[in-house]
Design a protein around this nucleic acid. Structure first.
Lengths: 198, 198
DNA sequence: TTCATTATGGATTGATCAGTTCAAAACTCG
DNA sequence: CGAGTTTTGAACTGATCAATCCATAATGAA
């Protein structure tokens, strides 16, 4: 019936996501998005309503893939609660040290967007808030389970421990952007676990 | 010899700092800076070489005032090491909850700049790196002292503990921007101290 | 007062911004 | 093949960006 697309929408979304991730929303121009995706402006604006719409979809994709893989670990019943958290931290350390070109990496798009946009972009704030709730809920469940099975010895409220773990992960990501190397991140993770098991 | 200035340079710097703090570097236009300082473009460009130069001076001012007041606490010999850290965390909680208008606050300019600019602004990266070193050095000294006086019971390397505390503070600031309230931040601080004293 | 010097406001620069328009190209279906 | 529909590339739009220019105002020193 009509001319078909010659590009993969998900591929374009991935390329856009990486660009927003590396440069941030404001610093990414539509030309940058054309370059990164290999598409012309018409194709981008024909497929996505606007730069902001494209950003929302890229952020959604990032959040989905990130949180999905993290929740999978949290719900892995083969491991004790403490082991799951250890695995979660290892994933964070790996992610932070993997994406590095040269000295530093781009950190985490969720954290970056919280800093850059949460105060003046209601849609982004909403997505981030929903994701935070989801992550905190899963963390709390794991921590409660750990308190029952004895692998988490801290008597603190599991909800408070969940917020602590979530903050620790964000702190590791900021530290990574600030130049901390793998060993430094690993020791931060170890000490974070001390608070739960020590 | 010549016409004198009718404005206070430090006041202008403060106003610019607040604007960069709230909106970030990229999202702050030179017009925003004129509005915030009450100055005309000519006065700004006559006093500061460029938007970037003004930003550097604003960031330097922020770092100076922030780190100076924090180091003062760290070196307060009237308090035990653990008490100093408790005070430090209280300062962070207060700062995060004080600057709030409505729901969220602007976080911390140091963390915000790390996220936004450290990857592509060598001068900013340099200032932040220097500040991080200074803060880590002071933290390590406090933690070593605590290990000697017994108020810090963790046997971990003091340098690693310093990086952990630094990451925890950054994590609290991100959590605050993400919507965490005062009680949540306080409990994160408490649990962070568990890792050092538990 | 007069001269030298700096501060200031407003107009202006060229570049870049996000987004639109339009004609030509490319495809499907009849 | 040809009608109908969508994609695509390139030119283009008005707005805004950081930064400059210039004429005028305001000051201190002589």
């Amino acid at each position: 019936m009509a001319r078909p697309r010659t590009f993969d929408e998900d591929g374009a979304l991935d390329a856009a996501m990486r660009t927003f991730w590396e440069k941030g929303y404001e610093a990414t121009s539509t030309q940058d998005l054309c370059d990164a995706t290999g598409l012309g402006r018409s194709s981008i604006y024909n497929t996505f309503k606007s730069k902001h719409d494209l950003f929302e979809r890229a952020l959604s994709r990032y959040i989905d893939s990130m949180t999905t893989s993290q929740l999978a670990v949290m719900e892995d019943t083969r491991l004790s609660a403490a082991e799951r958290l250890r695995t979660l931290f290892a994933m964070v350390v790996d992610a932070e040290t993997a994406h590095r070109t040269g000295g530093r990496g781009p950190g985490c798009l969720t954290v970056n967007t919280t800093v850059e946009l949460v105060a003046r972009d209601p849609q982004a704030a909403d997505m981030l808030e929903r994701d935070t709730r989801r992550r905190l809920t899963a963390l709390r469940a794991v921590l409660e389970e750990g308190q029952r099975d004895g692998s988490i010895t801290s008597p603190r409220d599991a909800g408070a421990l969940a917020r602590f773990v979530n903050a620790a992960i964000a702190g590791m990501r900021i530290s990574s952007q600030g130049g901390a190397d793998r060993a430094a991140l690993e020791s931060i993770a170890d000490i974070t676990l001390d608070a739960l098991t020590g």
